[in-house]
Simulated scan of single mutants.
Amino acid sequence: MTDDSWVPDTCTLPTAERPLRLAEFDGLFHDALRGADRLTARHLRLRLDGSAEPVARDLIDRESACCSFFTFDLARPDGDTLTLDIRVPDARVGVLDALALRATAARGR
């Protein structure tokens, strides 16, 4: 999935940098995603390998700075697993849909 047309206009990341950010998410998903659960339309929970914590934390910190509508919560329920909860407001469910699709597609590579 290379089309970033789902990225909202409110994203402040420069357009030229968006493919790089998407590639970073794809890399995280490919390397560390262990599962994904759509808890509600506005809430996605990703289960990640625990070793990905530094990469995940850096990425969500930078993403929060450019797309403030995301709420990210990173937790370690046990030593080997991270959970990354991603929430969006009703108006941004389409963005979460695209991110969920991207996660499952990258995991399958």
Rank of each mutant, 00 (worst) to 15 (best):
H43F: 11
T2C: 01
T12V: 10
G108P: 14
S68N: 04
T2M: 01
T81C: 15
P19S: 07
D85R: 00
S68P: 02
T10D: 15
A36E: 12
R38D: 15
D58R: 08
R62M: 04
R47A: 14
A36Y: 12
A23D: 07
D31C: 12
R109V: 15
R34S: 12
L59T: 03
G27L: 01
W6S: 02
L48C: 08
T81L: 14
M1P: 06
H30Q: 06
L101Q: 13
T40Q: 12
F70I: 00
A98Y: 07
V93Y: 08
A56S: 09
D31Y: 04
D78S: 12
V93P: 06
R57C: 03
C67F: 02
A98E: 11
R107V: 12
R45T: 08
L101K: 05
R38I: 09
R38L: 13
C11K: 08
L99F: 06
D26I: 09
V7M: 10
D49P: 02
A103W: 00
R21S: 15
T10V: 10
H43S: 12
A41M: 09
C11Q: 11
A52E: 03
D85Q: 02
F70Q: 02
R34G: 13
T15Y: 12
V7W: 10
E63V: 01
L44W: 15
A56R: 03
